[in-house]
Simulated assay, not measured.
Amino acid sequence: MPTKNIIFDLGGVLLNLDIPKTVQAFEQLGAPEFSKLFGLGRAESFLKAYEVGYINDDEFITDLQQLTGGKSRDEVVHAWNAMLLDFPKERIDLLAELRKKYNLYLFSNTNAIHLSSFAKTFSDTFNGASLDGEFSKAWYSHLIKLRKPDVEAFEFIIKDGGLNPSESVFIDDALVNVEGARKAGLNGIHLEPGKTILDLDWNLS
């Protein structure tokens, strides 16, 4: 069936990310094991809990402060946001072109602190524009309490958006997320390392 809907990931697809910047920032704040905690064990549990809205900002920040030996709220929030870079104009211009032919959606694994930060970056970069305004609907993991690559998360957005999976394409730079989308019946495009959305063939069947 012809494609009618495109669902974009955010970080690494529309927004440039540099995760090592956050790792380095926490190491400088006195958390030398942050790179390990970031993906494994206890830290993974509270990071994931925050990403699906199970803990609030204050609880998350307290966890980060404990990792850094009690650094200030501002210091740990700044370190947490260090990974968030810029929105290249040409990618946002491409969205405007694609909207002429497709319905555009956004689905991001994120959290309240990051959402506040990148929404401001977008607004500051594009003359007060709203990131969510670029899409028919935007879903953020901490608000829907579901995250990629879980099939249930994709089934939720399909139902909530009233989407026909066979007419919908999901684009992510993480292959595991694309695989999750495919399990839910969506068509998936993996944005491979070194590629941007400007490199894709947008003549979608």
Score class of each variant (00 low, 15 high):
E179V: 03
K36V: 12
G41A: 12
A43Y: 03
L175H: 04
D172V: 05
K4A: 14
K21N: 13
E27A: 12
A119F: 06
G11Q: 03
D18V: 02
Y54I: 01
G30A: 01
D201F: 03
F46E: 12
V151D: 09
S108M: 04
F38T: 03
L84P: 00
D86T: 15
D18W: 01
V77R: 04
A129Y: 02
L175P: 00
L94Q: 04
E192Q: 15
P165G: 08
K100T: 14
F122A: 04
P2G: 01
V52E: 15
L64A: 12
G194E: 02
Y54L: 11
E59Y: 01
A119D: 13
D199I: 00
S166I: 11
V176A: 10
Y105G: 04
E192M: 15
R42L: 04
G161C: 07
L17M: 12
G188C: 02
Y105N: 02
G39Y: 13
F60M: 05
K101N: 10
G180F: 01
P2S: 12
H190V: 06
G188A: 07
L40T: 15
L115C: 13
G11Y: 07
E167K: 12
L85W: 09
S168H: 11
G180I: 10
K101V: 11
F87E: 03
I19Y: 11
E167H: 13
F34V: 09
F107Q: 02
D150C: 01
G194R: 07
K4I: 08
A138F: 10
S45T: 13
G133H: 05
Q66N: 14
P193V: 13
N16A: 09
Y140P: 00
E134R: 01
D57F: 00
L104H: 01
K183V: 11
V151N: 07
A174P: 00
H142S: 04
R91I: 02
F34I: 12
N16L: 13
A174F: 06
N187M: 02
Y54D: 11
D57R: 10
R42G: 00
G188T: 05
T68W: 04
E134W: 05
T125L: 03
G70E: 05
V77T: 12
L47K: 06
A96Q: 08
L67V: 06
N177Y: 10
G188F: 07
D58V: 12
G11W: 00
S45Y: 10
R42E: 13
L143E: 15
A82G: 10
S130W: 07
A181C: 06
V23D: 11
P2L: 12
G30C: 09
S108Y: 06
W80F: 14
L104E: 03
L200W: 10
D86W: 02
D124W: 03
F38C: 01
P2C: 04
N109L: 04
L95Q: 08
G194P: 10
Q28F: 05
G39T: 08
R99L: 02
N56H: 09
T196M: 06
L85R: 09
T68Y: 01
E27L: 05
K100L: 15
S45D: 15
F87Q: 08
N187L: 07
A25G: 06
N103Y: 06
L115H: 14
Y105P: 03
E192S: 07
L186Q: 10
N203Q: 07
D63E: 14
K36P: 00
A43M: 13
D58R: 05
E90L: 00
L84Y: 02
S205C: 00
F170M: 08
A138K: 06
S35I: 09
D86Q: 14
E97L: 15
P2I: 14
F38D: 02
